[in-house]
């Protein structure tokens, strides 16, 4: 009985939060001097215009799935990895360097680039994990500082050792076509990397919910002291989850380079590393939830993209909405009438 009541409450919460989010969106659109009805129409048209626009949802979701699932895994173990942005860029940088410097092109090149990107992102997150587990230094501050360091280093790299010798712009040489991840659905940008992202999310879900590794990670996140007393090493698990989490972000970086941009340049993450944090939070740190949340977010992004082009509604609206959703989830108790004790008392008095 308790369970059904809880589920009902949850469903009610979700509907309320969705309705409030729509309301906020409508207000923001009105603030831009546009009509919400027209905006809604453009929004839906933008998504279902043609097969390219539907494929675009998956293209946009791909890095968000990988980084979002990565954050979810780390958060479940109580490790606040805010460094997906930096891990993404380091993965992209190392992946590009590997892809360009290997004499061999083709599937082996792709595989090596992905593996090295995974290692690079994982090792970067490992720094924060080691500082956290040995010196108890806040991983939030460390990962944020590492983000800025990596982003500046990338700026240096694309102007010096990774710069395309034939061009004058700060970007790397082009990845050999044989070593790119090509589209697998013709006339769209739907590439093989998207499958990698979905498979990674499934693996992480299996790992977290069906294996002892996942059980230990969750135990550490739930109560460090109890886990330690129960013979689960806190340090080992923090290092493990950080490495996985950073590695996934690193792969996201490599895929963005070899599937979409075809070269390394600045700003390619489009802040997906920070969005990933919110996606993981919305998903309640569940890997499959993060997969779904990333897809929904990407859908909204594609829709608002068409709103921006046609109505001039800034697409920063997406950032407000995702922030608002997390705040609404945290503040959901305010949506429950029983929170307002004085109202209840009045009712009883009647």
């Amino acid at each position: 009985m308790m369970r059904t009541a809880e589920t009902m409450q949850r469903v009610k919460d979700i509907i309320l939060i969705a309705a409030l989010t729509l309301l906020i969106a409508a207000v923001l659109v009105l603030a831009c001097g546009a009509s919400p009805a027209e905006a809604m129409q453009l929004f839906i048209q933008g998504i279902f215009r043609n097969r390219q626009s539907v494929a675009e949802i998956f293209v946009k979701a791909c890095p968000l799935i990988l980084t979002g699932v990565g954050c979810a895994v780390a958060f479940q173990a109580g490790f606040f990895n805010i460094g997906a942005e930096g891990q993404f860029y380091l993965g992209a940088l190392v992946g590009t360097a590997v892809s360009l410097s290997l004499p061999l092109q083709g599937p082996v090149n792709i595989l090596l680039a992905l593996v090295c990107g995974f290692l690079a992102g994982g090792l970067l997150a490992l720094i924060a994990a080691l500082l956290k587990s040995t010196f108890n230094i806040s991983e939030i501050i460390v990962t944020i500082m590492l983000n800025y360091i990596v982003i500046n280093f990338l700026g240096y790299a694309v102007r010096t050792f990774l710069k395309d010798p034939e061009g004058n712009v700060p970007q790397s040489a082009k990845i050999d076509p044989a070593s790119q991840l090509l589209p697998i659905i013709t006339s769209t940008r739907f590439h093989a990397g998207i499958l990698i992202a979905i498979i990674a999310a499934l693996i992480m879900w299996f790992l977290m919910s069906r294996t002892t590794i996942g059980y230990e990670l969750k135990a550490v996140g739930f109560n460090q002291r109890a886990a330690q007393v129960g013979g689960i090493s806190v340090a080992k698990n923090i290092i493990r989850c950080a490495f996985l989490s950073g590695g996934l972000a690193g792969i996201a970086g490599v895929i963005e380079v070899i599937a979409i941009q075809k070269k390394l340049l600045e700003g390619i993450s489009a802040s997906c590393g920070y969005t990933a944090v919110l996606i993981a939070l919305i998903a309640g740190n569940h890997p499959l939830g993060a997969l779904i949340a990333a897809l929904i977010y990407a859908t909204v992004q594609v829709g608002t993209g068409s709103m921006q082009r046609q109505l001039g509604v800034p697409n920063a609206i997406v950032n407000i909405l995702i922030g608002a959703v997390v705040l609404l989830i945290l503040g959901r108790k305010l949506l429950h009438l029983e929170t307002y004790g004085f109202l209840k008392r009045k009712k009883e008095a009647k």
């Binding site: 923001l28 603030a31 831009c32 606040f80 805010i82 939030i140 920070y274 969005t275 944090v277 919110l278 939070l281 800034p314 920063a316 609206i317 997406v318 950032n319 407000i320 909405l321 995702i322 922030g323 608002a324 997390v326 705040l327 945290l330």
Partner: peptide, 21 residues
Amino acid sequence: TVSGLAINMFALGLTSFLFKL
């Protein structure tokens, strides 16, 4: 921690949006 992170993202969206307007 979660609240603080959400606030950072919310403020980033809000200020960028209003500034563009």
